[in-house]
Design a protein around this nucleic acid. Structure first.
Lengths: 199, 199
DNA sequence: GTATATTTGTACGAAAAACGTATAATTAAT
DNA sequence: ATTAATTATACGTTTTTCGTACAAATATAC
């Protein structure tokens, strides 16, 4: 029980920094946010920042770590449920993405600074890869069980899944529907059933 | 007709710069956007920028000028219509604001740089004041015509109108309704009829 | 109380970014 | 050929941001 409150205070600062860092990065992009700004907003001195992180890129990596682990946790919880079908699990996975729990790719991978920093880019690559592998495993299992038709590559499914939201932003597509979420629905249904009417 | 195309090219650059400047300022705020970035995005050299503008603040002022004049034009067009009642005109004015035609106050006045630069702040004050005066004049006339009840200060009306959107962002208010636009509708109806049931 | 761990504020030099200007070359219309 | 405008490059200056050092302050443990 020794030094318990001290450690808590230490972790609290860590959370404050990663929290406001995430917020500001999402809003303005990594490049436009300064360390001093993060400290100011987080109510933390600059020295404390450097106690926890080497530099801005280091902070970004820690934030990515947090996001990935949070995502994986809720993804696993979802996949372990036994009260819903596989199809419903996939639909919920998409909904999770929609609600913004998994912003890693969208926010960080498109960022200018990320693109110009090859080391950071590969870090994200590797992290994303680990998630990719886990999801892929689930899909291969689902295929073996017969939840997915056998004559399709699981990698193709993941690829399509990851690009649904980019497709949904396509202007020509958006014009065909009243609301943006209708486009998503259409794409998701297309994803499950193709163009054939259900028997 | 001499030097016509040259002038057009000149104006074209002006429009490109103000256009992308407006876009970037709206997205990230004035402080976070650099002149070089604007030039890059606008496809214009830095020298050309300085042919047209003295510095970033100068560009901001020109953008405000454009916004104000655009707003006034469409406002006047609206008020000159004879096919709709005064109430409908006011409702359309609010809708105009909603659709983002009049972003001057919301985007520029809240900006950090604007706040820290007293000269720019007063410039916006004066510009807003000129719009305010014109609208106020219309409302006094409407009051004389009997479109608005006599025992209310026209200045109060304008004040409330300018604060509707801030009110609509209030979290406690938002929780009471399903959609954000419902809050606006409620506020607008409250604005017209108070709490009394219509006879 | 004292000792220990952490945070803070200030100040500072170094590095990087952005600013604003000068100059010569380029483009395009007259 | 002339004129006006734009561009590319380079450059010195100013401003911002970075990362660190050190002393003071805060809070907990013993």
């Amino acid at each position: 029980m020794t030094q318990n409150n001290i450690k808590e205070s230490y972790d609290e600062k860590f959370r404050q920094i990663t929290g406001t860092g995430k917020e500001l990065f999402f809003k303005y992009g990594i490049k436009r946010v300064t360390i001093e700004e993060i400290c100011r907003e987080a109510g933390v001195s600059k020295m404390t920042f450097y106690k926890h992180f080497n530099n801005k890129i280091d902070l970004v990596k820690r934030i990515i770590d947090l996001l990935v682990s949070e995502n994986l946790t809720s993804y696993r919880e979802l996949m372990e449920r036994i009260d819903i079908t596989f199809e419903e699990k996939v639909r919920l996975t998409i909904q999770m993405k929609l609600e913004g729990t998994s912003e890693i790719g969208d926010t960080f991978y498109d960022d200018y600074l990320v693109k110009s920093d090859p080391e950071l880019a590969s870090y994200i690559q590797i992290k994303s890869g680990s998630v990719f592998k886990e999801v892929l495993k689930d899909y291969i299992e689902a295929q073996e069980r017969g939840d997915i038709r056998k004559d399709i590559k699981p990698e193709f499914i993941l690829f399509f899944l990851n690009h649904i939201f980019e497709l949904a932003k396509n202007e020509k597509l958006l014009k065909l529907y009243m609301h943006p979420w209708e486009v998503i629905m259409e794409l998701v249904n297309f994803f499950f059933y193709g163009i054939m009417s259900r028997k």
